[in-house]
Nucleic acid binder design. Sequence first.
DNA 1: AATGTTTATCGTAATATTGCAATCTGATTA
DNA 2: TAATCAGATTGCAATATTACGATAAACATT
Lengths: 110, 110
Amino acid sequence: MGATKTEHFTDKQNEIATLAKALGHPARVAIIEYLMKVNTCICGDIVNELPLAQPTVSQHLKELKSAGLIKGSIEGNTICYCVDLKALKKIQNYFAKASDKLEKIKSTCC
Amino acid sequence: MGATKTEHFTDKQNEIATLAKALGHPARVAIIEYLMKVNTCICGDIVNELPLAQPTVSQHLKELKSAGLIKGSIEGNTICYCVDLKALKKIQNYFAKASDKLEKIKSTCC
DNA sequence: AATGTTTATCGTAATATTGCAATCTGATTA
DNA sequence: TAATCAGATTGCAATATTACGATAAACATT
């Protein structure tokens, strides 16, 4: 089949999966890291930073955007992209809770 | 082409992408959550918890295992699976740092 | 030994992802 | 207005993922 059966899972599970999936490619991790490195939203320039052709980068940006991880606003000729703090915090919070919970449990068997 | 160009990215970027990718499917998020809920490593039982056929679940478990997110040890007839705290902490730490950094920056434009 | 239970693997079909050349669109500039 | 530039979109080929039936492998039970 090849199509994920999202309807069988909770909204939260699907949400986390969507965010994680968006970061499930090194190019997209690199984009996020670059946007954070430059310290402000950056207009243009992203394509030159990556070892991929312009249409490929454009597609990765689109995926990050549709997952809500980045925002883009048109600035004349170029487009300004920056990381959406809210989305990042959502992931961060999820894993912080999970990590804490697991640490408390200290499972004895594995 | 369809094959990720991992060689162009750093080891760290590839590592995060691999972990994120493993969690980029709601069934695998559900598996992790279930393993945490039951509070100890669980032998068997995982297939019954998920709305997917047994071979599909087995495949998802394999992916989580090869990404290092879970560990499995043979226990007689069944297999005990549990979340690998180290891997979870790796993700947690990465996003905590990223989130902190972004929060300090407080980008002014988007 | 035969049967049942649990999990893995194989094979296959449907669909998704990755990557890029070519092209298009909209804004800027000459 | 024409040339230019930044990005997006289209179309396509290669590969990966998702899902499951059938089957196999390993152990347990009878």
